[in-house]
């Protein structure tokens, strides 16, 4: 249970970090919170020859509102989202998600961007980023690029992030008071990996849903939006029949993982239930 030897770098600036990545990218790895990478290294499933530790780059440690967006720097840790990071609907939504992430000591180290870079199918933040169509700001010595989740998540623990690239910032669009949110997750034990989860973000006008974003995670190899259910919800009053049908659509739409934790049939059932719970939460607030 000891990692293989590696070279250790602790850059103080983003420029220094992306220079190191350009130099060591194929053999190297960014170390942020380390709550997924270090266990994998201890098991020797991951054997990076170089670690580029970004924990000493103060410039990456921020969460701030700017230009209608919540900007989350690469060092913002999960625990920071346990209480609202700002005012407004989005800032109130994130604590309800954050409490499902691992346990307190894990939340004190692990980072929002690190979760997105790791792309575990059971990651709450990956689901949030997908549901809210986050902008992912990526940097390398080759330049900067911004991508959306649908062109980023490529499968379990697999993304389109290149070895020389740093996921520097996540941007979530702020939600005004006409939006309602809901989040539901099922795992067998507190803090355990989710077997299924759902996020619902709805805009209401005069009691009708005028915009719907529904995301499902934990059940398939990557989080996804359920377009057919969003279409059903939009224009409706979000009544019990609609909510029930949205759950059915989501359960059929996904391609569930099958592993020792849950069969595909069970995962579809969980998705159905989580979607209904998330929608009901959003609609009753």
């Amino acid at each position: 249970m000891k990692p293989v030897s590696f070279r250790y770098f602790a850059p103080r600036s983003v420029d220094e970090a992306i220079d190191l990545l350009a130099e060591h990218g194929e053999e190297g790895k960014i170390l942020a919170g380390g709550q997924s990478l270090v266990p994998a290294m201890n098991f020797r499933l991951a054997r990076p020859a170089s670690l580029i530790d970004i924990n000493r780059i103060d410039a990456l440690d921020y969460v701030r509102e700017d230009g209608g967006q919540l900007r989350i720097g690469a060092l913002a840790r999960h625990a920071r989202f346990e209480t609202p990071v700002a005012r407004g609907v989005l800032a109130a939504f994130l604590p309800r998600v954050a409490r499902h992430i691992g346990h307190l000591p894990i939340r004190c180290r692990g980072t929002f961007c690190g979760s997105i870079a790791h792309a575990d199918p059971a990651s709450e933040w990956c689901l949030v980023a997908t549901t809210l169509n986050a902008e992912l700001a990526i940097m390398s010595r080759r330049g900067r690029r911004n991508v959306r989740p649908n062109e980023y998540f490529a499968g379990a623990l697999t993304t389109t992030l290149q070895p020389d690239e740093l996921l520097a910032e996540i941007r979530l669009g702020l939600l005004d008071d006409s939006w309602r949110t809901g989040f539901a997750e099922f795992s067998r034990r507190a803090g355990d990996y989710a077997l299924a989860m759902a996020a619902a973000v709805l805009r209401l006008e005069d009691g009708r849903i005028v915009d719907a974003r529904l995301g499902v995670g934990g059940a398939a190899d990557r989080p996804s939006r359920i377009a057919a259910a969003e279409a059903l919800l939009t224009g409706s009053d979000g009544g019990p029949d609609i909510v029930r049908e949205a759950g059915n659509i989501a359960a059929e739409a996904i391609e569930p993982l099958e592993d020792i934790h849950a069969s595909t049939v069970y995962r579809r059932d969980l998705v159905r239930a989580m979607v209904r719970r998330a929608l009901n939460q959003a609609l009753t607030r």
Partner: peptide, 19 residues
């Protein structure tokens, strides 16, 4: 292996001493 690092509870098996 939980210890406090700068007052935060952390798993000390998931942190390198150099950090």
């Amino acid at each position: 292996c939980t210890v406090l690092v700068d007052d935060q509870p952390v798993r000390s098996c998931l942190m390198f001493a150099v950090q």
